[in-house]
Design a protein around this nucleic acid. Structure first.
Length: 323
DNA sequence: CGTCTTTGACCTGCGC
DNA sequence: GCGCAGGTCAAAGACG
């Protein structure tokens, strides 16, 4: 955790990799859940450039379909205001994402080769780099070895190229479940305690080969009922069909439409989700991330599921979209 | 047996 | 340069 993150609640945030009505189940016109009904009480805006009927949350994560920026701009609802009080602005939950320097360097090393991020010019090389990186890492000394040479080998990667972060987006979810199903399969590869937080941060990686998407899951220190999920990178594959359980179908609009129970379950998880993207970065940094903050008004309402709040957010979005 | 989680060690980047 | 904190690795164990 860097001190600047403590001081700046608006963490650098990269381009928001997509959004659609299906991201929130109640955006799904076919979703019979009560949330959908509630949301239907007021017309929902159509997000520019999106086909709201044929995208899933996974599509959103896949991120190759839409212009993220349109949504990012749309949801830039409080970044410039003075009422920014992030529920994750306690330092404890802050990501180590204040790496604008890294990002601005425009280097490429690891991560998902499929990213459409135009800033990544050598995607193929990037993918290769990712594999090489993992190989070299695996070549490192066995645990417990004290050989200094091995230690140097462990860092057998290009040293001049700073690590480039994938586009990331985070959202808050009021849920008792830490690891929310999103349709993809994840392998947990690490867990760290976070400074000033009693809740650990878990690190997940997509289990699909050649898919370097990662995500971090942690609980908000200030509001333990809120799960902060941060995705990094974009999937270069479809949702696995061999998921255990029903995760693969949970986020498919068509299945949502045919399975009220699943839809309801999902809706509960996402009921109080708040996507907090922002493109307010004046430097146009494409590899940084802003954790958009909620206004006190919204924060207060975050305490309880409130359809009105969701509509509020949507309305705010609609206003932003209006010319 | 394959997959996933746990967990301590190690690496990296940043601020001082 | 040093220390801190975040991020990652990979062996070991758990689980189905």
């Amino acid at each position: 955790m860097s001190s600047n993150e403590k001081n700046d609640p608006q963490y650098n945030y990269d381009s928001f990799q997509g959004f659609n009505r299906s991201t929130f189940p109640f955006f799904d016109d076919n979703n019979p859940s009560i949330y959908n009904q509630a949301a239907a009480a007021a017309p929902l805006p159509t997000i520019q450039g999106l086909d709201p009927s044929n995208m899933s949350f996974a599509d959103c994560l896949h991120g190759s379909i839409v212009d993220y920026n349109s949504f990012s701009r749309a949801f830039d609802m409080s970044c410039s205001s003075s009422d920014v009080v992030s529920p994750i602005d306690d330092g404890s939950n802050s990501m180590k994402i204040g790496r604008t320097a890294d990002n601005s360097a425009g280097n490429n090393t690891t991560e998902n080769p499929s990213t459409p991020n135009s800033s990544v010019s050598s995607s193929s090389n990037e993918g290769a780099a990712a594999e090489d990186s993992s190989k070299t890492k695996k070549d490192k000394k066995p645990k417990g070895s004290k050989d200094g040479d091995d230690k140097s080998k462990k860092v057998n990667k290009p040293t001049k190229e700073k690590r480039q972060r994938e586009p990331r987006f985070a959202f808050l979810t009021k849920s008792e479940i830490d690891h929310l199903e999103d349709g993809y399969r994840w392998r947990k590869y690490g867990q760290k305690t976070v400074k000033n937080s009693s809740y650990p941060r878990s690190y997940y990686r997509c289990t699909s080969q050649k898919c370097g998407v990662k995500k971090r899951v942690e609980r908000s220190f200030q509001d333990p009922s809120v799960v902060v999920t941060t995705y990094e990178g974009q999937h270069n594959h479809h949702i696995p069909t061999t998921l255990r359980g029903n995760a693969a179908g949970m986020l498919s609009p068509s299945i949502l439409a045919s399975s009220a129970s699943m839809a309801t379950s999902l809706s509960q998880e996402f009921l109080t989700s708040h996507f907090l993207p922002s493109t307010s970065n004046p430097a146009g940094d494409t590899n940084s991330m802003h954790y958009q903050s909620l206004s006190p008004h919204h924060q207060q309402q975050l305490q309880v599921p409130d359809y009105g709040l969701l509509q509020d957010l949507v309305s705010s979005f609609a206003r932003k979209q209006a010319p």
